[in-house]
Design a protein around this nucleic acid. Structure first.
Lengths: 136, 136
DNA sequence: GGGCTTATCGCAACTCTTCGCAATAGAGGG
DNA sequence: CCCTCTATTGCGAAGAGTTGCGATAAGCCC
């Protein structure tokens, strides 16, 4: 089913603004920030308010089209939900980021589920520490 | 060695403001936010600027007296570095937080170190997912 | 197409955090 | 105790994200 129809079926509406946010996410290769999306949209449609972008990202996440990730800063990174999941290693010293296959994190997820009944989404937040270079 | 002496030995200074931040962290049971600390200090010493609190938390972290953690929101949580480390599970639906023994996370840390030379600090960021109740 | 309901929008105000800068005040040396 | 050096502070302002609210317009029904 097309996205617009799906959104409507859930009692929400497909607005110009919402479509622009989706398009911006489609254009973005990897994780983007709300501020970046807002800026790219406002370059062409200055009348669209940043708060609308923030609210739409949240709405699209509820609808299942978008997810967000937290690296080590306070910035929220967004991407399409259909992108392939992966983990992140972030170095607290040099700030370098590294993507890792999600299955490395699987054993932990399994254990948390077994021992705590907790369904972890390990792609959601980055693992912080010292990278090979900085650990010396 | 006492903290003040240690701080001076590192070429930094022990100021009234810095001591107040340390005291506030000592009073706080668990993780606190900068804003909370600032508010508690300003209740008695309104002349102390919030920016000073933020800067002091950062400085005290460099000095090794405090650490910070990111749960699922964009807020930075602070605590004394000598508190015992533990992991966090945060439910993305109901927002509940749960502390878990750090050794559950050890195997992953070991593997990241072996396969990526990465020294993970798994107490630093919370694991996000669905808690037992919300996972149904 | 017109009317109705209400999700969504743009705006303005506000909160939390960061930053540049001039003034202040720890700390060491004489 | 005074002097000097510079880490640190308070302030003002800017960033980044959030929220309340009245206005707008999407979607449904006829």
């Amino acid at each position: 089913m097309d996205i617009a129809g799906d959104i409507r079926a859930k009692g929400r509406r497909m607005t110009v603004q919402r479509r622009l946010v989706l398009d911006a996410l489609r254009r973005a290769r990897h994780h983007t920030t709300a501020e970046e999306i807002s800026r790219s949209i406002r370059a062409r449609y200055p009348q669209i308010d940043p708060s609308t972008v923030y609210r739409n990202l949240e709405a699209l996440e509820q609808l299942g089209y978008v997810t967000h990730t937290h690296l080590d800063d306070r910035v929220t990174r967004w991407r399409r939900a259909d992108a392939e999941p992966h983990g992140h290693l972030v170095c607290r010293r040099c700030g370098s980021e590294q993507e890792i296959p999600i299955d490395i994190l699987e054993p932990l997820a399994k254990r948390l589920r077994g021992e705590h009944g907790f369904r972890a989404d390990l792609a959601h937040s980055a693992v912080v520490g010292l990278c090979r270079k900085c650990a010396g």
